[in-house]
Design a protein around this nucleic acid. Structure first.
Length: 301
DNA sequence: AAGTGAACCTGAAGGC
DNA sequence: TGCCTTCAGGTTCACT
């Protein structure tokens, strides 16, 4: 599920449960996900209080009261759900596990956080990830600042940092197609395949266009680069407001669905009519560096 | 430097 | 019904 808006939606769902709470225990139900879990991770988490839950790009960071940080990534198929700690069955919200009908857990439930909070009912936060491209690493306080997964990340597309002026020096001279540049987490951190396609369509820019053509000879941004920056911010903000996009069976932490997928202009709309006012083009799917790009050849130049 | 393809892994969907 | 292929929101690495 996870581009930035989906991760931010997860953060907002988990924060009320996690922040200020104590991790009574953590169950690791396999050796690791994309990477092996940090050695001794479950034991080092037990008894810790979560100070805050934040997000950087597509990463979730749970800061603990000893200064260490649980760094989490959802990969392609990771999701969290919150369950009452009282009931024994983790499958309550996901019935139909035919393979292990007596199991307490659903298939691909890999990590369970047991959370206690004064004055409130105990709860559990369950991480499920069929493809296991996600990961969790426990990072000591003194290693977070220059952690290799975080230190190379580019600017966030939220807030007011992202502008044509900020992008111009990063885009200047680049020959790569815009699609590749926008997916590069070292430039802008948090964009993924869906929102790159959407932002390029919003700005009327071809995904195949060479990046450097959006910067003027004197190094200043063109009007089209200003527009692209604005479209990126808008599409990300709107998607966060909508609770992200729920493709396939992905759900929010409370089991509900995001609904931004209903607002897609191009993503997964191959062969359908372009939604731009006055444009009669049809959305096409092409492949760029192995990934689907959806665009309107008529109005994206 | 830039671009592609493969790898990691499972499941859903479509064609026959 | 089953078998096969293709595709999927991410990231990294090897190769041309």
């Amino acid at each position: 599920m996870p581009e930035l808006p989906e991760v931010e939606t997860v953060r907002r769902g988990l924060a009320p449960v996690l922040e200020g709470s104590m991790l009574a225990g953590v169950e690791l139900r396999r050796e690791g996900l994309r990477f092996p879990f940090t050695p001794g991770m479950a034991g080092r988490l037990a008894g810790r209080r979560v100070t805050s839950l934040s997000r950087r790009a597509k990463y979730l960071l749970a800061t603990l009261d000893d200064g260490s940080t649980l760094l989490m990534h959802l990969g392609m198929s990771g999701s969290f759900r919150v369950a009452s700690g009282k009931d024994r069955s983790a499958t309550d919200e996901r019935p139909g596990d035919f393979h292990h009908p007596r199991s307490e857990f659903a298939r691909h439930d890999h990590v369970v956080f047991h959370v206690i909070r004064e004055g409130q009912e105990d709860s559990r936060i369950i991480y499920n990830d069929p493809r296991r491209f996600g990961f969790m690493l426990l990072v000591p306080a003194d290693e977070l600042g220059d952690h290799p997964l975080l230190c190379g990340l580019g600017m966030e597309p939220t807030g007011n940092k992202l502008s044509g002026k900020a992008l111009a020096p990063l885009f200047c001279g680049r020959k790569a197609p815009l699609k590749a540049t926008l997916l590069d987490q070292r430039i802008i951190a948090g964009l993924g395949n869906i929102y790159v396609c959407e932002a390029l369509h919003g700005a009327g820019l071809s995904p195949k266009r060479r990046t450097g053509t959006l910067v003027r000879g004197d190094g200043r941004p063109t009007a089209r680069l200003d527009l692209l920056a604005s479209e990126i911010r808008t599409v990300i903000a709107r998607a966060i407001e909508a609770g992200g996009s729920s493709l396939r069976d992905h759900r929010l932490t409370d089991g509900s669905l995001g609904y931004f997928q209903h607002s897609f202009s191009v993503y997964d709309r191959e062969g359908k009519a372009c939604k731009r006012a006055g444009c009669s083009g049809l959305i096409r799917r092409i492949v760029q560096s192995g990934r689907s790009t959806f665009h309107c050849p008529a109005c994206q130049r």
